[in-house]
Design a protein around this nucleic acid. Structure first.
Ligand SMILES: [Zn+2]
Ligand SMILES: [Zn+2]
Ligand SMILES: [Zn+2]
Ligand SMILES: [Zn+2]
Lengths: 165, 165
DNA sequence: CTATATTTGATACAAAGTATCATCTGCGCC
DNA sequence: GGCGCAGATGATACTTTGTATCAAATATAG
């Protein structure tokens, strides 16, 4: 054992890496170590990471990532459509649908940080329609909805004193 | 004339300042010089400004604004609902509807930078519905649609050589 | 006008993102 | 399997964007 590895070859991990491999081939892009590493780290985090959180995690593994390399790699993975950036929290998250570029909406719980990636047909249609109405040919649609998720509302309710004002 | 003033008392300017005055009274907040100044500067810019562009403009006038004071004031005006932040461009823009807090969508031309603030009922309904479906009580809805506006598409078309590939 | 709770200005710092360039490497080709 | 090189990386330095702290100033109520 030459090097400690804290990432286990889970099925999800294998699937994601396979997907990256396929996309790189399709697009004629190179599959490099940092690209694999960023994908794997985002995957195992299972939540949005800021670029610098990601950087710290990567450095713990390889010791030589830099801000520049992390941003470059994130840009690359975003262009492939398998990583998304959450504008409202300046963080990056692995795509939950592994089927190429798509328009999605994010629901973000401001209490627990949970993020749900949705693909709502109604919203897609409504935004497209608005763009047309105002004469815009849209090429990017950022929809980020922030609030409190069901679980957090339920637990918050426990603290309410119904009689008290 | 003690001090040069490069801002003229236009009707729009007067209206906006009146509005700020009213909102401050309503909310029991103080109406201070920097608050007036930031509003007036955003108004005369007539386009989104980054916090530091705004800072430069303010310093040209009063010489003593700082990053901290600009961000504080922007936060204040955002809470009143008369300034919005464009997440995708990290910039701030004066609200086009001066009727209190509201949910809007921004259409942003990536070529000319034009920004349109829309209030689309369909999108509002669709986002609310999605929130409900996924159990989220929403309190913020960021919708920023980027593309190319009609004017820019028209002028870009002039460079196309229809026959050429 | 005075009192006082807020706000400001000043300073210093933290976080997020980009530019440049010499070095290295993934991968198509032999 | 090994070569060659377009394209990617690592290293460094820098810019932009946003916060924390606190003494001094000031907007408003009385
Ligand atoms: Zn996705
Ligand atoms: Zn939650
Ligand atoms: Zn508005
Ligand atoms: Zn345009």
């Amino acid at each position: 054992m030459r090097k400690a590895r804290n990432v286990s070859p889970t099925p999800a991990r294998e699937r994601a890496l396979r997907r990256l491999e396929d996309l790189c081939r399709e697009h004629g892009e190179r599959l490099t170590r940092p690209r694999r590493a960023v994908l794997a780290t985002l995957l195992s985090a299972r939540r949005p990471l800021s670029a610098y959180e990601l950087l710290d995690l990567l450095r713990a593994e390889d010791g030589k990532s830099t801000a520049a390399s992390v941003y470059r790699t994130l840009d690359f993975l975003r262009a492939l459509g398998i990583v998304h950036r959450l504008e409202s929290t300046r963080s990056f998250v692995l795509c939950e649908h592994l089927e190429g570029p798509h328009w999605v909406q994010f629901l973000i719980c401001r209490r627990c940080g949970q993020v749900v990636e949705a693909e709502d047909e109604r919203i897609a249609a409504a935004t497209e329609r608005l763009g047309q109405r105002l004469g815009f040919a849209l090429d990017q649609r950022i929809v980020e909805l922030t609030g409190v998720c069901e679980g957090c509302r339920a637990s918050a309710a426990c603290h309410w004193r119904p009689g008290a004002r």
